[in-house]
Each structure stands twice: as C-alpha cells, then as structure tokens.
Nucleic acid binder design. Structure first.
Lengths: 345, 345
DNA sequence: GCCCCTAATGTATGCGCTTACAGACAGCGC
DNA sequence: GCGCTGTCTGTAAGCGCATACATTAGGGGC
C-alpha cells in the first residue's frame, strides 16, 4: 500500500470516509469516542490529509503566495556573499508575510523570478494559492491584471500601477523630504548631491522626489536628475561616490539607499574625507549595517516586515470580501539619526 | 462564471479537455496550430491550471517545503529590529532552497513553527508538498519518522537524530578546531574563554567540542563547560562578555557565533579593552556584519545557502530514487581571518 | 485502391477529499 | 405508543485535472 488515504483510515476505524474528513475539518461534529478512534488509526498509519485533494474539493488551498524578482541566476552555485539590497529587503518582507500568514492559518509559498521568464511564474504560483503578493516590477502589469480577475493580488512597493489592485507601499517621498529638511534646518546644509538608484526603480525615484521637494521648499536649487546613480549595492555606491569626488564637494551626500551610502562611507574614508565634518552622509532603509558602521549612518527606517504583514491583511480582507473597493496603504517611515549627518552619537 | 477551468477553455477552443491539458503538460504532442488556439483562449479567459487538481491527478505537487522554528510570537506586531541569529540563518537557508528548487522546477513552501504547536505544522506542510526539509529541533523526532515513511524528509543542521533520514550539516567541529588551532599556533594564545550558545543547541555544542579538541591537541587545559553562555543574540553576547570581564582576562575570547562576538566587541570597546592587542576575539558563521564591524571579525564562514541547496538536492535524489540509502552530507566551512584575532587587516 | 503506421485528438476514469443530503437512533413531550 | 427533535453517521456527487486507451485522419508502400 502506498500513502494512506481517508479510505484506509475509514476502513480501519470502521467509519465512513465522511467521518474521517469531519474529524479533521470539524472535530466537534464527531462523537469524542469516534474521533479518538479515527485519530489513533490515522496516527498509526501515518495518515496526513492530501492538500491537493482538500484544495480541489474545498476550492481553497490555505496558501498565500509571494513573488519577487531575484536577479541571481540559480544556475550559478554562487558562494554566500555580498548581495544587492533587494535580497535583504525581500527576506524581510518574506518573514513579515510568513508570520502574518501563519497567524491567520495560511502557509506561504514563495517564488522568485528571473528577470527573463515571468510567464511560468504567474501560472506556477497563481494556480496554487488563494491569493498572492507581488513585489513591484516582478510581473508584467498585464499579467497581473489577468490574475487579479481570478484571485486576490496585492502589489508591494512601487507605484500603484493598476488602480484595481490592492497595494502597500512605504512613505518614500515623505521620509526623504523630512530627512533632507532636517539637514537643511538643523545642520545648515545648503549644497547637496543625490546618488540615485536605477532609473526605473520607483522607490529610488520617489525618494529623489522627496529630496527635491525639501530643497525647493527651502528655496534651494534642485536638479532634475540625481547627480550620480548606483545599482543599490555597496559597490555601486562606491563607484557613484568616486565619480562625485571629481566634482566640488557638496555639504551633504544623500544616497537613495543604505547599501550605497555604506559603500560611499568607505570611499570617503579612504580619500580622507571626514564624515560628518567635511560632508554629511545619509541613506535610506534602516538596515542593520547602518547601526554598526562608523560613523553611524543617519537614515530613514522603513518597516519592511510590516509591508509583508500588511500585504497578508489586504489579501485576507479581499478573500473575505471580494467586492471590497481596492485599497492602497501607505506605511509610515521613521527617521533614524546617527552621527553621519552631524547629529551627536 | 467563476474561475475558468479546462472545460471552459476546451469548449471555447473547440477541443477536448485532454488537449488543453496536453498543451500545458506536453506542448509538443499538440499540433502547433491547435496549441496556439488553446493558449489564446486561455489567455483571453485568464485561465491558469489549478494546482490542486493537478496535484491530485498527478500525485505530485511540484512543491518542496521548509520548516524552521521561529520563536517570535506572530501575535506581536513587533517592529522590525534586532533578532536572534537564527533569523538570518533561516533566511539564508530559505534563499538557498528557493533558488535550488526553482532551478529544478519546484516551488518552495515555508512554514515556521512556534515552539508550542508542531502538531498541525507537520500536517499542514506534509500534505502539501512532495518532500520537505526541517531545521533541527523544529519537529519532534517521532513525528518526523512518521512523515519520513510517507515522503522524503531531510534534516538540516543539528545531529543526525534519525539514521533513516537524509541529512545535511556544516563542519562545526572541524571549523572551530581549526580556528582555535590558528590562535594557538599563529598567535601564541594559551589562555582561552569560550562563550557558548544555548545548552541545547547542537551547533553550539559541536563548536565547543571543536574548541576543546584544539586545546587538548595543543596540550592546553580544556574546560568541560563553556565559560559563559549567551542566546546567540548581540545582547546575549554583551551580557556574557560582561560576566567574563569580572574574571581575569584571557588572551582570546571564542564566541559560539558572530552575533554574540559582535556584542562582545561592543562591550570590550566600552570597557577600554583593546582588540586584538589585549584580547583576541573570534566568532562563527561569517555574517555580513563581521566584515564591517571594527575591528573586522575573524570567524568561520559557513555556507548557509548551500545548506538549503543541498537539502533540495537530497530531496530530489530521493524523489527520483526512493529506495536509495539515506545520506548524510557534511559541508565544509572556510576560515575568514580579519583583524580581531591579531591577523593583519 | 488497399492496408498499415504514425500523429493528433477525443473518451472516460479516477486521483482523495468536502459536503449536501439522507438515514438511523435516542430522548422527549404528549 | 406516537411523532418530533436533535445528534451522529453514512451515501453519493462532484472538485479540475492527467492519462490510458480508443478513435480518427493522413501518408506511404505496394
């Protein structure tokens, strides 16, 4: 005999398969004595209900999904090591979702996609879950719209490309504006440079927008484009910083994320530029490294786990009430002031 | 009409459901013209094959599972922040598994368990996947044995509790022995203190064993118990270090993991104890922080992602060849020498 | 022009479960 | 003693797909 099924358990316990099913689905509807007998047999046989059969019969899987981009080619047995910031970010969102999902009785299916082949990704996830969350720019918008007709989909981060979709993001623009305003108001900074992210990163662009708003509000000139760009990695931050050092030194370097800022700190130290005496440095994200690095990195801390948690809440809301109006949630960020901006320790 | 099924697509494309099924399962067996017609209709309807139905009919889900302990209570909306080392560790394993699984065409289902309720965990995962990996001490051994009769199970880290199970671990003992031998041979250290992990952590104990082996081999006295213990967190490392500072300072502090070592560095700096001049410090794990912290942390780098990757390989091997002898894989670790042990930058 | 073989598609069954509905049985009021 | 109620259990009908087997169409050899 292969894997035991309800039939095996039922036969052995002298009940019908319906009773076995009820023992798992609705224990109170079965007499205690019967229930115990069934459970004893199940245990003896090593019976576990088949998720597929359950899903098919009940039309719900009890699983939520998460799709995010993963630029690392899984063909390469890369050694553990330095990664783009996105990795950490995705891990935190995953953790937030997992915990929230578990609390609601759901499991979490994760699927990263290569830049190239999103086609199969959608299918492989969408067919297996009751709803899923997608990190911005993982799946083509039109595919998302298609899927959203079929099951709940929530978009995490990025702009709300599709109005009909539920959506969570953090207050990138507000956070950056407030941070830059702090530099202007409290440290008297007037000459800035901004190190942006990839041109197509909505997060990076939203932060740059906040930067410009702060400058404009302070009556300072604000460039239309970042003064330099990086790819969100420390290496990218180093390169971007070297390029900037060929120009006159501004009073503050504003990086679109922490990893690049940390790469920048490294270059500045090597070049003998003192932070924050010669130039203030700020990042964005609030990663752990920023706390440990010297000088401590002033940044905007975004609630990554809460992003995942909120995504689960939105999914479950929609599962409960499919016709509900799509919601877009904006999560607040917090300012984390350390020494790199000129604040005391 | 609700969610579209094969029947809807078949009718609309004027084919039988078998043909629709074949378009997805085995595209080459369908004439190109027919296939395109089916795919066009599927796209138009937003059809995605039901994972449950597929799983039921084909008796396999295309999903692998990962269970790990998560001591954080998901009821608490904790803010993102400092966490036990285990969090990072589990994230890395998850990522390694995800990539390896994706490459093989599998998705990854993750399920963390509370310390308390593992009963439902097993069922909720085991019923939904083709095989799964478990971090040591997540699930009671007897439950594991039960599950292993039903589907492939591989145990990650920890001792190999059950001989019949496939198993992956890193060379904790060897790595620690080599690290400590380096301190003895190359830095002339003779007086040590060891900061252990939780008494029931197999990893921490294996490392302590390596430490003792190195001392014994060098003809030095080796205590039966760690000189202090922590809970693998930075805070735990700080506390353990403060306790040790009440005693005569040894020449080297060996921490059971990096997080505690980093906490220790912090305390030592505050107390004015110079590293490595007054005392050498070494950790274990090879986390990113150790590279950034000052002085750079000498440690043993363990291949966390490869742990997950190997788990997938073992699962798939067993899926392919169910009768294969159980295997236990020991992954090598590498020495990472930075300044905290006395080595040059 | 007939037969056979292959490629393409259709038919029909079952995967293991959930659940609406039906049946059995005990306890109750009258 | 009758019917009525409520509790517990059984019967049976799918859920959406994969796949063995049957069927059909077309092509080549003779």
């Amino acid at each position: 005999m292969g894997v035991p099924t309800v039939y095996d358990v039922a036969e052995r316990a002298n009940v019908s398969i319906a009773t076995v099913s009820r023992v798992y689905r609705n224990p109170d509807s079965v007499r205690a004595q019967t229930r115990d007998r069934v459970l004893a047999v199940a245990r003896e046989l090593g019976y576990v209900p088949s998720g597929s059969a359950r899903g098919l019969a009940s039309r719900s899987t009890g699983v939520l999904g998460l799709c995010f981009p993963d630029h690392a080619d899984p063909e390469i047995d890369e050694q553990d090591g330095e990664d783009a910031d996105l990795t950490l970010y995705a891990d935190e969102i995953t953790r937030g979702m997992e915990r929230a999902a578990r609390r609601r009785g759901y499991a979490l299916l994760i699927a990263a996609s290569l830049a190239g082949g999103p086609e199969s990704l959608v299918a492989s996830v969408a067919g297996r879950v009751d709803g899923f969350a997608v990190l911005a720019r993982t799946i083509a918008t039109e595919d998302l719209e298609l899927m959203a007709r079929r099951l709940p989909v929530v978009m995490i981060a990025g702009p709300r490309e599709i109005d009909q979709l539920d959506h969570v993001e953090v207050a990138n623009t507000d956070g950056e504006r407030e941070l830059v305003t702090h530099l202007v108001a409290d440290h008297g900074v007037r000459r800035f440079a901004f190190v942006g992210g990839p041109a197509d990163s909505p997060d990076a662009n939203a932060r740059f927008l906040g930067y410009r708003q702060a400058l404009t509000a302070a009556g300072l000139p604000a460039a239309d484009e970042p003064d330099s760009r990086g790819d969100f990695t420390q290496a990218g931050g180093r390169d971007a910083t070297r390029r900037l050092l060929d120009l006159p030194l501004p009073q503050a370097l504003v990086y679109a994320n922490d990893q690049m800022a940390i790469g920048g700190l490294d270059v500045l130290e090597r070049r003998g530029v003192r932070v924050p005496e010669d130039v203030a440095v700020v990042g964005f994200d609030g990663i752990q490294l920023g706390r440990v690095v010297r000088p401590g990195l002033t940044t905007v801390t975004q609630p990554m786990r809460r992003l995942g948690q909120t995504a689960v809440e939105l999914l479950i809301e929609r599962l409960t009430e499919p016709a509900r109006e799509p919601r877009s949630v904006l999560l607040p960020v917090t300012q984390t002031r350390r020494t790199s901006c000129g604040c005391p320790g």
